[in-house]
Amino acid sequence: MTSAELLAGRYRRVAVVGSGAMGRVWHCLDESGGNRAVAVKELHPHLVGDSDHVRRFEREALSAERVRHPNVAAVLGHGRERTPDGMLPYIVMEFVAGRNLAAHVHEFASGTISWRAQVLADIAEALHAAHRQKVVHRDVKPENIMITTEGRAKLTDFGIALADEHLNQRLTAVGYTVGSPAYMSPEQVGGEVVGLATDIYSLGVVGYWLLGGRLPFVGDSVAEAARARMTQDPPELPTTVPVNLRTTIMQALDREPSRRQASAKELATQLRGDLTALHVADPPKEEAPVLNPTLEIVHSDETPVAVHYLVEADPVLDGLVSPRQWGLAIGRRLSEGDDGATRLGVLLTGVAILLGIASGTGLFVLALMVQAAL
């Protein structure tokens, strides 16, 4: 492939990994950076001649480049590439291997309350980092939260963010509101003053959906549901959600911005406190299900060649896809053991799982045999 076929002379397109109204995102290899995987977002070619779309697209790059945090998908740079359609703007971003929160929860619906509270706390920290740079995201929703293969939450898509001098402006001045209706704050819906509290409300909606299994406001139409939040309080979350966590989310959903958490940092602190309380208090049944392993030995010529460790009806382990996540879950099981033999058994089981994931060697079988003997 010649340099002319590379974006900006260095980014080789591998596959499209996402597409939206404004552009599409490519998985690329940076041939000037040791073939490092990156994500490159390009404006749709038919929008290159639209100055408003170009300005919004490049504002995303400028806003996101200022925000550096482990829970924010990093923007590495941006530029324009000459094409037959004109100067094509693009944004180079950290490549996040995983899926968005909506897709993740759809596939792993039994993720624990603790895990969900952790995701919310991490995104609150990400918003705090953005707010410190005077950037308001304005479009916090599950589709803009990525869950990596290691289980880390990352905030993405600053495409409609406001920064600096645009903060606390009335959106009706330009005749429209922006954002995703289901997650908009009342002030966004009404075209009122938009500030940091807007992101807190939107994350509260995400939290309500994540913990309660539904959106706080529904109606016969999107417009009806959006208007409801301007005059009504959301229904209480189910009692299966711990009371402290319910209180935190409901405060974030207050119609009056001044009664919400004073900052995203305060929201993160409350969520982490709620998370600590979950671990200290007697956990509900769904938080500490019994580990019920089943072994399935796959034979080739009557010789075991692979052992699959299957977990049945265990929300804590359901959806964990990396050795690190399995290790953390097994560590929790280890701390719950009542005696030395039980703890040693769980420890060896954890070692077996990690060895099995990493290498599939005979040590996996040996560790399980020892564990079974206990």
Rank of each mutant, 00 (worst) to 15 (best):
P216T: 09
L210G: 06
W209F: 14
P216V: 07
L253V: 07
R246P: 08
G212M: 10
V206G: 03
T231P: 09
E224C: 09
Y201H: 15
L237H: 09
S221D: 13
A252H: 07
P242L: 02
G219C: 06
A252R: 13
V222L: 14
L203V: 08
A228F: 00
E236G: 10
F217C: 01
T248V: 15
D220V: 09
D199M: 04
V206T: 09
N244D: 15
Y201S: 03
A226R: 14
T247F: 02
R246V: 05
Y201C: 05
R227Y: 15
T247W: 09
T231K: 14
F217K: 04
A225T: 08
Q251F: 01
Y201P: 06
D220P: 07
Q251C: 04
D199R: 08
A225D: 01
G204N: 12
P235M: 02
G207M: 05
T248D: 11
L210C: 05
P242Q: 10
T231I: 14
M250R: 09
M230H: 08
N244V: 11
L211W: 10
V241R: 01
M230F: 02
T247M: 06
R229Q: 10
A223W: 13
L253P: 02
M250G: 06
L215I: 12
R214K: 14
P216G: 04
V222C: 11
L245D: 08
P235N: 02
L211C: 00
D199L: 13
V218N: 07
L237Q: 00
T239C: 03
V205E: 06
G219V: 10
S221Y: 01
A223N: 13
G212F: 00
A226D: 09
Y208T: 12
Y208W: 10
V222K: 12
Q232G: 08
R229F: 05
R214D: 14
A252C: 11
G212A: 08
T248Q: 01
L237A: 10
M230V: 04
M250A: 10
R227N: 13
G204V: 10
R229Y: 00
Q232V: 12
T239W: 04
D233H: 03
N244C: 06
I249N: 00
V222D: 03
V205N: 07
T231H: 06
T239P: 02
V206F: 03
T248E: 12
D220F: 09
T247I: 01
V206W: 02
V241W: 08
R246N: 03
V218C: 04
V205T: 12
L237E: 04
T231S: 11
E236H: 14
E224W: 00
S202T: 12
R246K: 00
A252E: 00
P216K: 03
P238D: 06
G213I: 02
G213P: 05
V222N: 04
R229W: 02
A226N: 13
P242V: 10
G213H: 05
R214A: 09
A252I: 00
P238W: 01
A223R: 14
N244G: 15
A225H: 05
Y208L: 05
P242I: 00
G213D: 12
D199P: 06
S202M: 13
A226H: 10
R246C: 03
Q232T: 11
P242F: 02
V206N: 13
R214F: 12
D233Y: 03
E236S: 15
L253A: 11
